[in-house]
């Protein structure tokens, strides 16, 4: 059975959602404290949502220096799948594992509602089982979710098909409606919306299933 590590920073608060997201798909989830430095027992790593280190300084700015992040970088370099959801996405950009940065939302409003995402690329560990153009209803829950990067970075993200999800109706001012991206090797993904909270129609939407299922399928043990 595939086993996924869900990293808990002081201030993470979506770790149970993330764990349920993978166990619901038949995989195992194990919490990993942010001071752990060995991730070799896992087939994939999730950085969940929340407010790591209180979001002090900037979201993700201090989490980047947690000991576990060296192990996450190593895991990613070896080709292991890494998923950052919401705050986890912010941590991955601060750590330099994903390009760009997340800024305060346009309008300076905390946004907590469903959004419609459009699959822009299926070449990533998060979108491999989706289809291009597919619309997915997935909730957002953030204050700093406006994706930002310079022109050269944006052009290269688009050219390399690293923009994997876009908002249909841009809620937060993200550049190019970007909701989620992947790295050049397509095994590190980050997105502001919460697919792990859209796993059942009883809770409003099951559209996150195809994303979480892609990620679980991508799970692979790395050196």
């Amino acid at each position: 059975m595939k086993r996924f590590g869900v990293v808990i920073f002081p201030g993470s608060n979506c770790e149970y959602d993330a764990a349920l997201g993978v166990t619901q798909l038949g995989a195992e989830a194990e919490f990993v404290w942010h001071s752990d430095t060995d991730l070799s027992r896992f087939d994939g790593i999730i950085l969940p949502g929340g407010f790591a280190h209180g979001d002090y300084l900037r979201p993700g700015a201090l989490a980047r220096f947690s000991p576990v992040m060296k192990a996450v970088a190593h895991f990613a370099l070896e080709g292991g799948p890494v998923l950052g959801i919401c705050n986890g996405f912010q941590v991955l950009t601060e750590a330099g594992l994903l390009a760009g940065a997340l800024q305060k939302n346009r309008g300076l409003t905390f946004l907590s509602h469903d959004t419609t995402l459009i699959v822009a690329s299926t070449r990533s560990v998060l979108t491999s089982e989706a289809t291009i153009g597919q619309e997915l209803v997935v909730p957002i829950n953030h204050f700093s979710g406006a994706y930002t990067c310079d022109d050269a970075t944006y052009e290269s993200l688009v050219a390399n098909e690293q923009v994997i999800l876009r908002y249909r109706d841009n809620p937060n001012g993200s550049r190019g409606d970007v909701a989620g991206i992947c790295n050049e090797t397509r095994n590190v993904v980050g997105l502001m919306p919460h697919p792990e909270r859209a796993m059942s129609t009883l809770l409003g939407s099951a559209d996150g299933l195809v994303l979480m299922s892609s990620f679980v399928s991508a799970g692979i043990a790395v050196g």
Binding site: Q103, K104, N105, R106, G107, L108, A146, T148, D150, G173
Partner: peptide, 10 residues
């Protein structure tokens, strides 16, 4: 420069 500043604008 060129980075959106929603706080300043508000």
């Amino acid at each position: 420069e060129g980075i959106a500043d929603p706080e300043g604008a508000t």
